[in-house]
Design a protein around this nucleic acid. Structure first.
Lengths: 342, 342
DNA sequence: AACCTTCAATAAAACGTTTTATTGATTATG
DNA sequence: CATAATCAATAAAACGTTTTATTGAAGGTT
């Protein structure tokens, strides 16, 4: 691989001049700039990022650790995070923890080693004291996105999950549903907890208590949601509607509904949180709560860059942003048909 | 940030000894190892990756450039690539080009600057001489995955796209379909071309020519596929089946089918290439061709590491691997109902 | 007792950049 | 015309590691 010395030699100038020419610093005459550019082209020279990092203070690099890159929601988030960041002049390194705490830890360590200027963390499911300990002394601006982490004061940007759950509750109640099943995510994940809680509260506020027997675990996974929903549907008092707290689980719910020979929304209504092109393609279209992925990403990058900017001067004040969800009513929800098929 | 000198000072040993202790090289007595480990823990020391790269020859880093991280198929591929690579002791940096050639170029450049040991490229759509020129002198082992690039001799791992197209054709022909519409992807992307070509050939081999008026563009996008399919369905001689060459477009097709008040598979059969949990969740389930994403990723990493290993000794022989697709028949395809609803 | 090995630890060079201070050369100023 | 000011280019130090060669010290072998 060519080094800056090779470029200097070929261009017939000093190393310093090459550096100046490439970084548009100091005074370099136009023809020398030209000669340097030619030499770079000729040699296919790419500056050694490691060596650069050694001298420069900022890396202009942001690390993103994602809980599960195979999940379309996180994929979309990654996409938006990257375009937000690159719009502000930062490059982005994406790492995938695959919902594994150990892998998450390794990735964070790697990012620290690369001296990124900041980190965006979409935390893997599960709590761990080790994580708390590590994060609390991480020494680099960090923004927590999508899933909140308790007990740490980082800038946090999420959907207003409580409100999202409430939106679904209000919608279903408004349609006349009273017996509503919930397929919830892992207890340890804030989004799962909050969405359920918001749902429960909204129900309670109109005097409809949530029957704990109708709340089942789907673990944010389609297969798990499917099998548990099958059980729920087979129970004596089948609910007239089901709320899935994420889209993957909604798929499982829909499969189970179809397996049971039920028709949606005639026999049962289904609603979920999370939206993507698939929700439209289903027939009937799935009623969902859309997340402003774009705004979430933008806010996260904004907060992170602000944190990077103030660096170690002012006291670290951490902001907590919860963005507004939006209900999209499609065909999968309707009024319950009293006793029609029971 | 703490440096290795700080660690050395705190542990009361030389810098070299710290390095040896951390890298398990040379002879370091157990108690000194212990002292070093403690000092590292105490200071939260993370070795400066840039400085390491400067001295080490290998970086143990693999760069992955992905065409569109928001597409679940590529997300899944990214996930598998990462676990394959990390199983072989490599860390992975994921970059997202968002189907943009300029961004792809920037990312490749960045990866070169970071002196990755190898690159996996899932090429953005579109041909460009600039890309050809850049890649042909890239000087780092590179494997092309999923989408082939013409005119370059890199290790290439893809689905056997031609065969995948043929599988769908054989299935639909076997059911009795003769007028089949195709929603195809961008001309410039190998997967789109090959799938269509395999489909066409298989049809031709049983004496059924493909009516060019039934081949429409969906640009690998759900919305585009939807609007163009609407037009196709409204035409005089509506096809009895539609083949979408990827899953996103299949969603658009299904929407259009529903919009037109048609029922699948009664009025029209739909099949696609690409499989994920959504295909099962639909009702009826979508007939698809599954890609062995896992095997594709493994083969790609294998080829890349082999290429890294032989490095600059032996002449670069590039392998071309096409993996076997598998047809999964679900409810969305059935025999055409002669004139039932026409 | 003299010598060779092995073992632990170290000093110092090297990696490829950026940047500060320095040097000449050229142009402007009094 | 002398001096100051600007401009272009450079030499060399510094960044934080790894690694080679070196140094003692401690055991082993005759």
């Amino acid at each position: 691989m060519a080094t800056i010395r090779d470029v200097a030699k070929l261009a017939g100038v000093s190393v310093a001049t090459v550096s100046n020419a490439l970084n548009l610093r100091g005074n370099v005459s136009p023809d020398i700039k030209e000669r340097v550019a030619n030499a770079v082209e000729m040699l296919g020279y790419a500056p050694h990022a490691g060596a650069q990092r050694l001298r420069r203070s900022a890396s202009n690099l942001i690390g993103v650790v994602i809980a599960d890159i195979a999940n379309p929601h996180f994929g979309a988030l990654a996409e938006e995070l990257e375009s937000s960041a690159s719009g502000r002049g930062y490059s982005v390194i994406i790492c995938n923890s695959g919902e594994d705490l150990a892998r998450e830890r390794r990735h964070l360590q790697t990012l620290l080693s690369h001296r990124v200027d900041g980190i965006v963390l979409i935390a893997a499911a599960g709590d761990s004291n080790e994580r708390i300990a590590m994060l609390s002394r991480i020494g680099v601006p960090l923004a927590v996105v999508d899933r909140a982490i308790a007990g740490l004061s980082f800038d946090t940007v999420t959907l207003d999950d409580r409100r999202a759950g409430a939106l679904v509750a209000e919608h279903l109640i408004g349609l006349g549903h009273r017996r509503i099943g919930v397929v919830s995510g892992p207890e340890g994940v804030s989004t799962a907890r909050e969405r359920l809680e918001g749902f429960r509260e909204a129900l309670a506020s109109v005097g409809v208590p949530l029957d704990p027997r109708l709340v089942i675990d789907g673990g944010f996974r389609a297969d798990r949601a499917r099998s548990n929903t099958q059980r729920l549907l087979a129970s004596a008092e089948r609910p007239t509607a089901i709320f899935a707290t994420d889209l993957m689980m909604a798929l499982g719910v829909l499969s189970a509904v179809g397996d049971a020979g039920l028709v949606c929304p005639l026999d049962i209504s289904v609603a979920a949180i999370g939206d993507n092109p698939f929700a439209t393609a289903l027939h009937p279209g799935l009623t969902t709560v859309a997340q402003p992925v774009n705004a979430i990403a933008a806010a996260a990058i904004e907060a992170l860059l602000a944190s990077i900017a103030r660096s170690n001067d002012e006291p670290e004040t951490s902001t907590r942003i919860a963005l507004e969800p939006r209900l999209i009513v499609r065909g999968s929800t309707g009024a319950p048909q009293a006793g029609v098929r029971r």
